[in-house]
Design a binder for these strands. Structure first.
Length: 180
DNA sequence: CACACGATTGTCT
DNA sequence: GACAATCGTGTGT
Protein backbone atom coordinates (compact mmCIF):
# COMPACT_ATOMS: atom_id res chain seq x y z
CA UNK A 1 0.00 0.00 0.00
CA UNK A 2 1.21 3.48 -0.87
CA UNK A 3 -0.35 6.81 0.01
CA UNK A 4 0.44 9.67 -2.34
CA UNK A 5 0.98 13.22 -1.14
CA UNK A 6 -2.53 14.12 -2.29
CA UNK A 7 -3.98 11.33 -0.14
CA UNK A 8 -4.72 8.87 -2.94
CA UNK A 9 -4.21 5.24 -1.89
CA UNK A 10 -2.52 2.81 -4.24
CA UNK A 11 -2.91 -0.86 -3.36
CA UNK A 12 -1.72 -4.00 -5.13
CA UNK A 13 -1.15 -7.63 -4.32
CA UNK A 14 2.42 -8.70 -5.11
CA UNK A 15 2.11 -11.65 -7.49
CA UNK A 16 5.63 -12.11 -8.83
CA UNK A 17 9.10 -11.62 -7.35
CA UNK A 18 12.74 -12.50 -7.89
CA UNK A 19 15.41 -13.11 -5.23
CA UNK A 20 18.97 -11.76 -5.26
CA UNK A 21 21.88 -12.09 -2.85
CA UNK A 22 25.66 -11.65 -2.67
CA UNK A 23 26.42 -15.18 -3.90
CA UNK A 24 24.49 -14.48 -7.09
CA UNK A 25 26.50 -13.25 -10.12
CA UNK A 26 23.38 -11.52 -11.43
CA UNK A 27 22.89 -9.55 -8.22
CA UNK A 28 23.80 -5.90 -7.86
CA UNK A 29 25.39 -6.87 -4.54
CA UNK A 30 27.61 -9.59 -6.05
CA UNK A 31 30.68 -7.33 -6.18
CA UNK A 32 30.11 -5.82 -2.80
CA UNK A 33 28.63 -2.64 -1.49
CA UNK A 34 28.62 0.50 -3.66
CA UNK A 35 26.78 3.82 -3.37
CA UNK A 36 24.06 2.54 -5.67
CA UNK A 37 23.29 -0.74 -3.91
CA UNK A 38 23.83 0.52 -0.35
CA UNK A 39 20.17 0.03 0.54
CA UNK A 40 20.51 -3.70 -0.22
CA UNK A 41 22.93 -3.94 2.70
CA UNK A 42 20.60 -2.07 5.02
CA UNK A 43 17.87 -3.39 7.30
CA UNK A 44 15.29 -5.86 5.99
CA UNK A 45 11.88 -4.55 5.08
CA UNK A 46 13.25 -1.37 3.55
CA UNK A 47 12.97 -0.43 -0.11
CA UNK A 48 15.87 -0.70 -2.55
CA UNK A 49 15.17 1.29 -5.72
CA UNK A 50 17.51 1.25 -8.71
CA UNK A 51 17.55 3.13 -11.99
CA UNK A 52 18.26 1.19 -15.17
CA UNK A 53 18.35 1.47 -18.96
CA UNK A 54 18.53 5.22 -18.56
CA UNK A 55 14.78 5.46 -17.97
CA UNK A 56 13.30 2.88 -15.63
CA UNK A 57 13.09 2.47 -11.87
CA UNK A 58 12.60 -0.94 -10.26
CA UNK A 59 11.78 -1.63 -6.62
CA UNK A 60 13.01 -4.33 -4.27
CA UNK A 61 12.34 -5.28 -0.68
CA UNK A 62 15.52 -5.77 1.33
CA UNK A 63 15.45 -9.21 2.96
CA UNK A 64 18.73 -10.05 4.70
CA UNK A 65 20.35 -9.01 7.94
CA UNK A 66 21.91 -5.57 8.01
CA UNK A 67 25.22 -5.82 6.16
CA UNK A 68 24.20 -8.80 4.03
CA UNK A 69 23.22 -7.44 0.62
CA UNK A 70 20.10 -9.32 -0.42
CA UNK A 71 16.72 -8.24 -1.73
CA UNK A 72 13.62 -9.33 -3.62
CA UNK A 73 12.69 -7.59 -6.86
CA UNK A 74 8.98 -6.86 -7.17
CA UNK A 75 8.21 -8.02 -10.71
CA UNK A 76 4.43 -7.78 -10.88
CA UNK A 77 1.37 -6.83 -8.90
CA UNK A 78 -2.37 -7.15 -9.18
CA UNK A 79 -3.78 -3.64 -8.86
CA UNK A 80 -6.51 -3.46 -6.19
CA UNK A 81 -7.03 0.22 -5.40
CA UNK A 82 -6.19 3.54 -7.05
CA UNK A 83 -6.37 2.15 -10.57
CA UNK A 84 -7.36 5.51 -12.00
CA UNK A 85 -4.24 7.17 -10.62
CA UNK A 86 -2.09 4.28 -11.80
CA UNK A 87 -3.59 4.45 -15.28
CA UNK A 88 -2.87 8.17 -15.44
CA UNK A 89 0.80 7.86 -14.56
CA UNK A 90 1.25 4.73 -16.67
CA UNK A 91 -0.44 6.22 -19.71
CA UNK A 92 -2.62 3.19 -20.36
CA UNK A 93 -6.07 1.95 -19.43
CA UNK A 94 -5.12 -1.70 -19.74
CA UNK A 95 -5.38 -3.15 -16.26
CA UNK A 96 -2.72 -5.73 -17.03
CA UNK A 97 -0.21 -3.12 -18.13
CA UNK A 98 -0.43 -1.16 -14.87
CA UNK A 99 1.76 -3.27 -12.55
CA UNK A 100 2.86 -6.33 -14.54
CA UNK A 101 6.59 -5.80 -15.04
CA UNK A 102 9.14 -4.45 -12.53
CA UNK A 103 9.47 -0.99 -14.11
CA UNK A 104 5.72 -0.75 -14.71
CA UNK A 105 5.00 -1.71 -11.11
CA UNK A 106 7.37 0.96 -9.80
CA UNK A 107 5.98 3.61 -12.14
CA UNK A 108 2.37 2.79 -11.25
CA UNK A 109 3.28 3.25 -7.58
CA UNK A 110 5.13 6.50 -8.33
CA UNK A 111 8.34 5.04 -6.91
CA UNK A 112 11.62 6.71 -7.91
CA UNK A 113 15.04 7.11 -6.30
CA UNK A 114 13.34 9.36 -3.75
CA UNK A 115 11.74 6.30 -2.17
CA UNK A 116 15.04 4.41 -1.95
CA UNK A 117 15.56 3.22 1.62
CA UNK A 118 11.95 3.76 2.72
CA UNK A 119 10.93 1.63 5.70
CA UNK A 120 8.01 -0.57 4.63
CA UNK A 121 7.43 -2.22 7.98
CA UNK A 122 5.94 0.69 9.88
CA UNK A 123 2.99 2.97 9.37
CA UNK A 124 3.95 5.51 6.72
CA UNK A 125 3.52 6.58 3.10
CA UNK A 126 4.32 3.08 1.92
CA UNK A 127 3.85 -0.28 3.55
CA UNK A 128 4.00 -3.98 2.80
CA UNK A 129 2.10 -6.70 4.65
CA UNK A 130 2.67 -10.45 4.82
CA UNK A 131 0.70 -13.19 3.12
CA UNK A 132 -1.64 -15.61 4.87
CA UNK A 133 -0.75 -19.31 4.95
CA UNK A 134 -3.50 -19.95 2.39
CA UNK A 135 -1.91 -17.38 0.09
CA UNK A 136 1.54 -18.87 0.60
CA UNK A 137 0.18 -22.22 -0.58
CA UNK A 138 -0.47 -20.66 -3.99
CA UNK A 139 3.20 -19.79 -4.56
CA UNK A 140 5.15 -21.44 -7.36
CA UNK A 141 8.88 -21.07 -7.99
CA UNK A 142 11.16 -21.52 -10.99
CA UNK A 143 14.13 -20.08 -12.87
CA UNK A 144 14.53 -16.34 -13.28
CA UNK A 145 14.28 -14.29 -16.45
CA UNK A 146 16.03 -11.20 -17.72
CA UNK A 147 19.39 -12.04 -16.16
CA UNK A 148 22.55 -13.08 -17.98
CA UNK A 149 24.07 -15.03 -15.09
CA UNK A 150 22.76 -17.53 -12.59
CA UNK A 151 19.94 -18.69 -14.82
CA UNK A 152 19.75 -22.05 -13.08
CA UNK A 153 18.96 -20.65 -9.66
CA UNK A 154 15.31 -21.00 -8.76
CA UNK A 155 15.00 -17.41 -7.71
CA UNK A 156 11.65 -16.58 -9.18
CA UNK A 157 8.39 -16.78 -7.28
CA UNK A 158 4.84 -16.08 -8.36
CA UNK A 159 1.21 -16.74 -7.55
CA UNK A 160 0.24 -19.86 -9.45
CA UNK A 161 -2.16 -19.19 -12.32
CA UNK A 162 -2.39 -15.48 -11.53
CA UNK A 163 -3.06 -13.61 -14.79
CA UNK A 164 -1.14 -10.60 -13.48
CA UNK A 165 2.06 -12.63 -13.11
CA UNK A 166 4.00 -13.04 -16.31
CA UNK A 167 5.34 -16.63 -16.38
CA UNK A 168 4.19 -18.23 -19.61
CA UNK A 169 4.31 -21.80 -20.81
CA UNK A 170 8.11 -21.95 -21.08
CA UNK A 171 8.69 -21.02 -17.47
CA UNK A 172 5.71 -22.82 -16.06
CA UNK A 173 7.16 -26.00 -17.53
CA UNK A 174 10.03 -25.79 -15.06
CA UNK A 175 7.88 -24.48 -12.25
CA UNK A 176 7.10 -26.31 -9.06
CA UNK A 177 5.23 -25.55 -5.88
CA UNK A 178 7.22 -23.47 -3.47
CA UNK A 179 7.82 -24.97 -0.04
CA UNK A 180 9.32 -23.18 2.87
C1' DC B 1 38.48 10.56 -17.78
C1' DA B 2 36.53 7.20 -21.29
C1' DC B 3 33.50 3.52 -22.17
C1' DA B 4 30.50 -0.56 -22.18
C1' DC B 5 26.26 -2.11 -20.58
C1' DG B 6 22.05 -3.08 -17.90
C1' DA B 7 17.19 -7.30 -12.61
C1' DT B 8 13.08 -3.05 -19.24
C1' DT B 9 9.59 -1.35 -22.12
C1' DG B 10 7.23 0.12 -26.23
C1' DT B 11 7.07 0.22 -31.08
C1' DC B 12 7.61 -1.50 -35.50
C1' DT B 13 7.99 -5.43 -38.92
C1' DG C 1 10.90 -11.36 -33.25
C1' DA C 2 14.11 -7.37 -33.66
C1' DC C 3 15.55 -3.03 -32.03
C1' DA C 4 15.86 1.78 -30.28
C1' DA C 5 15.52 4.82 -26.30
C1' DT C 6 18.61 6.78 -22.71
C1' DC C 7 21.89 7.58 -18.68
C1' DG C 8 23.80 6.15 -14.13
C1' DT C 9 27.12 3.09 -12.58
C1' DG C 10 31.21 0.35 -12.25
C1' DT C 11 35.47 -0.69 -14.13
C1' DG C 12 39.64 0.08 -16.36
C1' DT C 13 43.21 3.32 -18.32
Amino acid sequence: MRRLDDGIRLVARIVETEAYDEQDPASHSFRGRTPRNAAMFGPAGHLYVYFTYGMHFCMNVVTGRTGEGSAVLLRAGRPLEGLTAMAAVRGTTSEWLLCSGPARFAQAFAVTREQNGTDLTTEGAMRITGATSAERAEISCGPRVGVSHGKDLEGRFWIRDDPFASPGRALSARARPWRR
